[in-house]
Design a protein around this nucleic acid. Structure first.
Lengths: 367, 367
DNA sequence: GAGTTTACTGAATCCGAAA
DNA sequence: CTTTCGGATTCAGTAAACT
């Protein structure tokens, strides 16, 4: 994975800018299949009682009875359908999307995501450590919001930095419920009058976890509802490129000022823990070729129950079985699969040593 | 609120019974506007592809029952539409409904609830304290399920026992996220062969909280997907009447046996389980996500002998070592283990401050 | 009997490079 | 495109087995 993307398509994107205007039009003006990740925090407090029209363009004058309630949902659904399909168009085939919402709108977004062919990977609960209490005591304290993480389609090769998220969580795999405080204090942006600049500014910690976990340095992150630019700010810190779209000038002004102050972390700090899957493959036969193990030498299973011999071509032979280190291990254990590297040991100076130690030696030499 | 309902309509209901058959037909056979609460745990429409094995090669017992197979979203939606409208019909005007699901189906249920005119009061997250891990490391651990609580319509006078839930929560307003273990151990019902009687038995603690919070003694609680009868069992304990509907005979048999053993609670029996509260674990990565420490920032060992840098995923990197705060500390000291929280410090205003101070700050926020 | 180790299990849309 | 096969991957809790 390189940190610099020098392709023409990449360079043609309006990177690290805030685009003015309606997000559907702005996204449709971008080239298709061009962004790696979309983070979307759409409004759900649409003016339901204002200039609302039914799909047939007849005016909706009240939202009290069931029909008009349905009418307002239909209106919200068509809004959702429009921006999600524009988002889908600009997303790379192996790209992914995050959306965030509350019970007012998240069920409609989730259903529409599925309808359009996005493939849900997880729903993630942002559990607020300091939510607004329910003052009237008529319901439960609304202490969370819901995010949905989805790939563009089933089977797509989405980015997931498993080890990095595991590191963020003290070595235990990251769960689908994230405890993060709401955005306040110094992080909360104020306007010139000292009031909060945006009603629903998201905490940077949320975006940090999303971008560390599901993008790589140099990726392009699009936020069609940019607001005051949390997505852009964290993307910049983390060495990702962003594209923001925001139609309210007041928000664009605040976001621009905010972004100017952000510095990218240094490169070393942006490298994250990687999995063993990304290490080069070492054929077992190489240990034999190099004389680290000799043909005819005996290997012993980790549990001590089985003994086999190494052959010159890097296969193993036992009493009634021959094949690769993995195949023989799986067969002897009656298991569907087996990692031969961790299953087999050899003897040196009377002690049992895992063969994986030899693989590590070879890998060390490769650097 | 009386505890005895002597009306003819109430008496005519098949109370505290398990009805055989399809839930839509069975609900349509009940009088309209007759039940106080519905709890529904419908099939989730999981779409599992192949087998899944744990890292130890044991096979995961998948939910592959015929009742969870739907051909498409369209089929699932029409199923949902049918049972929800039948449920709506039998619900009293001031009644309420709870549904539970995962990301596979909950967005479709939530949207359909809204479409039918139900009024969502809260979405509630059941955070599992002991979920099944993600064995392949390809996604986040699926550690929660979502419940939706809705009244029959906007403005309905639903039941909400605010103080009772507050008491259940040690005097603090009950939040929309509930930490409850999955159902296992002695509570998990077994069949004659000793296998689990139902693949998705819900914990009684979940229903306990729902019924205490949103029904009164003597209320009628309907469960159209009764399974092995958790709803009925808790309703009986708490002095509520129930109506169960279940089409699988095997589940009805188990549920009936279970219910026969249940006794209505004595008040004092309720107060036994107070939680042992230990200090919550705080991952070091959270300090980074929250910007309390920045990627690239330097940490110094308490003894001043070592200096390392923080990375974006909450690991540390030194001259020849990287890993968690504990691992790196242990390595540098040549010790078998090390408490990184007390070992590392950072600089603020020229002074060395232990990182543990930041952890204490986060813990303070959590209370 | 008391303490320790091993085995088992849970609503899961769970692999990917090379041939 | 399909097939093959190397080999990476788990947390909390219960209960049985063992010392």
């Amino acid at each position: 994975m390189t940190n610099t993307k020098a392709t023409a398509a990449h360079q043609a994107l309006p990177l690290n800018q805030i685009l003015d205007g309606d997000c559907v039009e702005a996204m449709n003006a971008l080239p298709e299949n061009s962004v790696d990740l979309i983070f979307a925090d759409p409004p759900y407090n649409l003016q339901l009682r204002g200039d609302l029209h039914r799909p047939d363009n007849s005016k909706v004058d009240a939202v009290d009875d069931a029909w008009d309630q349905f009418g307002s949902f239909a209106h919200y659904d068509s809004f959702t359908r429009a921006w999600l399909s524009a988002a889908r168009r600009v997303l790379k085939p192996n790209g992914a999307i995050w959306v965030i919402g509350s019970y007012h709108n998240v069920f409609r977004m989730g259903a529409e995501l599925q309808n359009q062919g996005f493939w849900i990977l997880n729903d993630v609960v942002w559990r607020k450590s300091n939510p607004m209490p329910n003052f009237r005591g008529k319901r439960l304290t609304n202490a969370h919001e819901t995010m949905i993480w989805a790939s563009k389609s089933e089977g797509a090769k989405y980015t997931f930095n498993y080890e990095a998220l595991k590191s963020l969580n003290e070595g235990i795999q990251m769960r689908s419920d994230w405890v993060i405080p709401i955005c306040n204090g110094g992080e909360r942006l104020k306007d010139d009058k000292g009031d909060k600049a945006h009603p629903t500014q998201k905490p940077e910690a949320l975006l940090h976890r999303i971008l560390v976990g599901t993008t790589n340095p140099g990726d392009v992150v699009l936020d069609p509802f940019f607001g005051t630019g949390t997505t852009g700010a964290v993307a910049k810190m983390l060495g990702r490129d962003f594209i923001g779209i925001e139609r309210e000038e007041a928000y664009r002004v605040v976001a621009k000022r905010r972004l100017a102050k952000i510095r990218k972390y240094d490169k070393e700090a942006l490298e994250v823990s990687t999995s063993k899957r990304s290490e080069p493959r070492v054929p077992f036969g190489q240990l034999v070729e190099r004389g680290m193990l000799r043909p005819g030498e005996e290997l012993f299973s980790m549990n001590g129950r089985h003994k086999v011999k190494v052959r010159a071509d890097g296969t193993l032979i036992g009493d009634d079985v021959k094949g690769s280190i993995h195949q023989v291990g799986a067969h002897l254990e009656g298991a569907p699969s087996c990692n031969g590297w961790t299953y087999w040991t050899f003897k040196r100076d009377g002690k049992q040593v895992p063969i994986d130690l030899l693989r590590q030696q070879i890998r060390a030499e490769m650097n």
